[in-house]
């Protein structure tokens, strides 16, 4: 499980960074999205990995904290997802505006000669 998650974070992050370096705006936005997925998984993994334990207290007392998952990283991920979603949408609008104004999808408006 740890290995699968680590690989997922690594592959998503690596692909994201590579795409960030590309010169087209479409590649840029996909790269940013992949990176944000990998970051979200990373935040999640920072709350340790209790398998099958909910972050919600059971009725009738808290009991042993070891039985529960840490709820804070989960709420952090939720906030990060929402904010990432909004900023990606905003970026998409700017991308469309740049496409309309410059007539190309190069990040600098036009490719260098």
């Amino acid at each position: 499980m740890e290995l699968a998650l680590a690989l997922a974070i690594g592959i998503l992050g690596g692909s994201g960074v590579w795409l960030l370096m590309r010169p087209r705006t479409f590649q840029l936005i996909i790269g940013l999205s992949l990176l944000s997925y990998s970051v979200n998984l990373f935040i999640f993994s920072m709350g340790r990995f209790p398998i099958g334990s909910p972050p919600i207290l059971e009725p009738g007392g808290a009991g042993d904290p070891a039985n529960y998952a840490d709820p804070l990283p989960q709420s952090l991920v939720l906030t990060a997802i929402v904010i990432g979603f909004a900023t990606t949408a905003l970026f998409l609008v700017v991308m469309m505006a740049a496409r309309g104004l410059t007539g190309g999808d190069h990040v600098d408006g036009r490719p260098p000669r």
Partner: peptide, 19 residues
């Protein structure tokens, strides 16, 4: 718009580092 595109992408990447 051109400068804004660069500005936004740099800051989005920086925000991911922040997280």
């Amino acid at each position: 718009v051109k400068a804004g595109l660069h500005y936004i992408s740099v800051n989005l990447a920086a925000s991911l580092l922040f997280l």
